[in-house]
Amino acid sequence: MLRHFVITTLLVLLAMPAFAIEHLRLATTTSTENSGLLAELLPPFEKANDCHIDVIAVGTGKALKLGETGDVDVVLVHARSKEDKFVAAGYGVDRRDVMYNDFVILGPKSDPAGIKGLKDAVAAMTRIALTQATFVSRGDDSGTNTRELQLWKAAGIKAEGDWYLEAGRGMGEVLTMADERRGYTLSDRGTYLAYRDKIDLGVMVEGDKRLFNPYGVIMVNPARHPHVKVKLARKFMDFLTSDTGRKLITGYRRGGEQLFYVAD
């Protein structure tokens, strides 16, 4: 009798549909993860929507490639020129401004290139190249790498040689490398603030309008990739730009300093 009851119960349980948690695939930059923002931002959304966000943190270029191939549902990145091309080519839809901070040129206290306090980022990059002071580049087609290359181009300099190191790594790892080599690097301010207590690099140059760093969120085009989870993706985008999302973004701090600001 008991055996019959157990078997019947198991058969009923096996016949019941499995209610798996829905997953949203997000490709984003290493800066949003390294800064600690995602750990603050994602759990409230996951809890409210009974879902899980699978994060792939890479450079902006790689994140957009994942969107092109339909390997993710949403991208959260920071290279506006690349984002616009992504949308114009039909790979993404409904781009929205989310937040911003700025880039800073970091360097060792010894400041061998003599750039500390300059307000012109291009002039600073020029001095670094002329003195052949060590510069560690992301070298990974990220948003930060894209901005760095724009600065070299504006300076009329082709960065190459023993002084110029292409890491092919995320922002956190590059900060560690630049610190170990007593070199300069370009970083988003959010990741720098998150790592500031772990490294001896300081802000050498800031405030140039060319260092403005906006972030945007884009849904992968479901017309190209029908498997994109449109409803959940749109809910996530709505969340990021909602009052709740904006408060979480502006309220996130490290060492008492605000890392990101919401777009108007």
Rank of each mutant, 00 (worst) to 15 (best):
V136P: 06
R224P: 03
V217T: 12
G114D: 05
Y215F: 15
D120G: 13
A154H: 12
V220N: 03
I128R: 12
K158C: 08
P214N: 03
R95L: 03
G117H: 00
K231H: 07
I157G: 13
Y100I: 01
G114C: 12
F103C: 00
P108G: 07
Y184D: 00
D188H: 11
G183F: 12
R138F: 00
D162N: 15
T176C: 02
L106K: 12
N101Q: 00
D141Y: 11
N101L: 01
T176Q: 15
A154R: 14
G161V: 01
W163K: 01
D102A: 06
K235Q: 14
L151C: 12
L186H: 02
A113P: 10
V122E: 08
D141N: 14
K109V: 11
I105N: 06
Y192S: 01
A178L: 02
T126Y: 07
L232I: 13
M125V: 14
P112G: 06
R96W: 01
I128Q: 04
D188L: 04
G139Q: 08
K153T: 09
T126D: 14
T185Q: 05
P214S: 00
F236D: 02
K119A: 12
V205K: 14
S187K: 04
A178F: 02
A123R: 13
V136Y: 13
P108M: 03
A133D: 02
K119N: 13
R138M: 13
H227E: 04
A194N: 09
A154V: 04
K119F: 05
D188Y: 08
R127T: 05
P226F: 10
G114Y: 13
G107W: 05
A167C: 08
S137F: 10
G190H: 10
K109M: 06
M219Q: 08
D162G: 15
S110T: 15
I157H: 12
Y192F: 14
V104T: 03
I218M: 06
M171T: 15
T144K: 07
P112M: 06
A124P: 12
Y195A: 03
A113C: 09
A113Q: 02
T185R: 02
T144S: 14
V205I: 05
R96D: 01
R196H: 14
V98H: 11
T134D: 06
N221I: 02
G114V: 08
